[in-house]
Design a protein around this nucleic acid. Structure first.
Lengths: 131, 131, 131, 131
DNA sequence: GTGGTCTAGACCACG
DNA sequence: GTGGTCTAGACCACT
């Protein structure tokens, strides 16, 4: 598994797990239909408690990214199953805003921020169209 | 003051204050050399605890955005004073990444995310060059 | 067979089987004296484990709805054989209560809930007397 | 507090807590704006673990019935805030169905089931219009 | 072997 | 004092 935990981070461990699984899916490491490792095995891999991973999986389910089949495992949903609601788009904007604002205030130019954006797309192996 | 607190949000109040001050500066509502309201008056305005605003100001100072001078108040530093370090640029990328990744996995297209980016720039009254 | 399994549901598969057999009987698809398919054939039909169907049949027997005779199969009992005890009536009320209460708290009107009730009766092809 | 836990029940404790809080709200024991007891105090009252009550509260939040304000408490939302979606109405029907079907198969008449319905409404102190 | 539930007890951040 | 997070370890139900 490709997940790296930073125990000292302010970001809760379960949130770190959630994010890195999302990034793994975005990157194409895992895709729709694939099964996530069992909560216990992933917990053992990461050296964290089972409940921590469990919470992460339930967060992913709440976001509509995976489906948890009791006693059977967690499966990545297909993009078709996941409807992108206007609320979700708005949420993306809401999440983007403070990051951009802080960057600007710290002295970053629009160009620099867009360059960061390109790097993120590249890291997710996505074509950064027209950026 | 232009700050709106959402008491129901998961985001801590002090963090909401911090972000909105940053957005206010990015938007040009306030600029270098300006003095932030006193901790007490802002706390009274927002109806929150004094300690909450105090924590927010200290967070802004830690980010290098303001300077707190005992008794004379909190002053916004000029952009020249604030050096944009490579570490800070990297931090922006690090903050951008999970937002973008989640958007992609939820089914947003690169175009949609870039559109959100444009809206954020527009909201911050910044020219979105070449986007 | 008319049974549809939803593998993603939180409701255990054996419980889904049990409910749908009950609904089938209520709907009149099958009646007293009829024999349920063998555990093996139904399990094969549904693509589930034999034990799962077996558990469902034993649940139906415990509820007094069918009689399991070793080797000759599971037979639906007649309504006369099944005595409706006061305890069972009370159990119905107990099961109804949380459903109704949640509906009300979520903002449903009495009329809306009664309308749902009518739809359920209609779906079970029963005359909804005086509702 | 009016909650009674049945430790032997198949229904999980956290679910029993959830249901009885919902019934309490439906009954008018508590209303919009009221604060639920803290997870720790309710847990102590009921003789269960804090996490069990915590899970119940989060279930109530997911249903849209309460809002959890971190470090401040859980508040009952007003009915206006809670939009009754068509999905929720359909869910009520889906929950009602197996209960009614089982009643019918066990030999209950439509009248008897509607009588149970009346009793439930009465218990929730609601006018059972035209039933 | 899986996730679900539950307990006990700990430390932290927020207000 | 509140909820949030995390750990450790247990038993159960389902497949």
């Amino acid at each position: 598994m490709f997940i790296q935990i930073e125990p000292l981070s302010n970001v809760p461990i379960y949130e770190q797990v959630t994010r890195q699984i999302i990034e793994g899916i975005a990157r194409g490491d895992m895709g729709p239909g694939d099964t996530l490792p069992s909560v216990r095995s992933l917990a053992a891999d990461l050296g964290v408690n089972m409940h921590t991973v469990n919470k992460s999986y339930h967060e992913l389910e709440a976001k509509g990214i995976i489906t948890i089949r009791a006693k059977s495992g967690a499966i990545i949903r297909s993009t078709e199953e996941r409807a992108l609601t206007p609320e979700q788009l708005q949420q993306i904007e809401k999440n983007l805003k403070p990051v951009v604002a802080e960057g600007m205030v710290l002295g970053a130019t629009v160009d620099q921020i867009e360059h960061m954006m390109k790097k993120v797309f590249a890291d997710l192996q996505l074509p950064a169209e027209g950026v």
